[in-house]
């Protein structure tokens, strides 16, 4: 495990806890950027003491201001983790304006952070971007397709930008999650799992640590499944 500086963009509070618990052992600098309206939920947990910044994922200017505040606070960023997955929109009941707003929040939000942080990483001469997705985006159910189709879009974005970013020594990859207690698969998906247990968050954190490692610079635009064997197709 290597000490480095992480910026974690997320609206998943349980993920915040697991990430903190694992990477504090490495004496890494961990900065969380969470949506403004989730402030009380995040700070209500045992995460007090970590660096939290709040911004509007829908607004480029708000993101730029948060990143400026982070950097002006003496931080630099080695690794950006994008894990935006808080969504309760159901295909059968969704208003299409809400669907569009969700893409603005999640897909364009991820793109906004990638764009802004990549500029800082270029100045530093290296960096790593990891987008965290749901494995069900490749085995989608219709109820959750609002979220899952956004994940596929981010997978495309990951691969599309990887070649450009690596010219500046910035790796861009993604991880597709199976059943973790902060990313539960639906019941039908669980029926097709080779193992009954949910994933151990430490295994995911270990994978993040591996992908963020500057010695692994030949893994570019890759998507790694950590799903207990759920996806067994070519």
């Amino acid at each position: 495990m290597t000490s480095r500086s992480y910026l974690v963009v997320t609206d998943n509070f349980e993920f915040v806890e697991y990430f903190s618990q694992y990477f504090e052992q490495t004496e890494s600098n961990i900065i969380f950027c969470v949506p403004e309206n989730n402030k009380s939920q995040v700070l209500g947990s045992h995460n007090e003491g970590y660096n939290f910044y709040h911004c509007d994922f829908l607004n480029s200017k708000s993101i730029q201001e948060s990143i400026s505040a982070i950097l002006n606070g003496g931080n630099h960023i080695d690794c950006l983790i994008n894990f935006i997955n808080n969504n309760e929109l159901d295909y059968f009941n969704v208003d299409l304006d809400d669907w569009l707003q969700y893409w603005n929040y999640k897909v364009l939000g991820s793109m906004r952070f990638m764009r802004e942080i990549a500029q800082e990483m270029m100045k530093n001469g290296q960096g790593s971007i990891i987008n965290i997705l749901d494995i069900q985006s490749r085995f989608p159910n219709l109820e959750n397709v609002v979220n899952l189709s956004a994940d596929t879009a981010i997978l495309n974005l990951t691969k599309a930008t990887a070649a450009e970013f690596i010219e500046n020594n910035i790796q861009c990859n993604s991880i597709s999650l199976g059943n973790f207690n902060f990313n539960l698969l639906n019941e039908n998906s669980l029926k097709d799992m080779p193992i009954n247990d949910s994933g151990n968050p430490k295994e995911l954190m270990s994978l993040i640590d591996f992908l963020a490692n500057e010695n692994n610079r030949y893994i570019i635009g890759e998507n790694i499944n950590i799903d207990g064997g759920f996806s067994r197709t070519l």
């Binding site: 490749r138 989608p140 397709v145 189709s149 981010i154 974005l157 599309a160 450009e164």
Partner: peptide, 26 residues
């Protein structure tokens, strides 16, 4: 085929592939 100069159409088209699978399943 993701491409750095197709950051609008590429992600949208990937999402439509996901939508296609989901509609077919349902």
């Amino acid at each position: 085929g993701p491409n750095k100069r197709y950051l609008t159409g590429g992600p949208i088209n990937s999402a439509i592939l996901t939508l296609t699978k989901a509609l077919a399943n349902h």
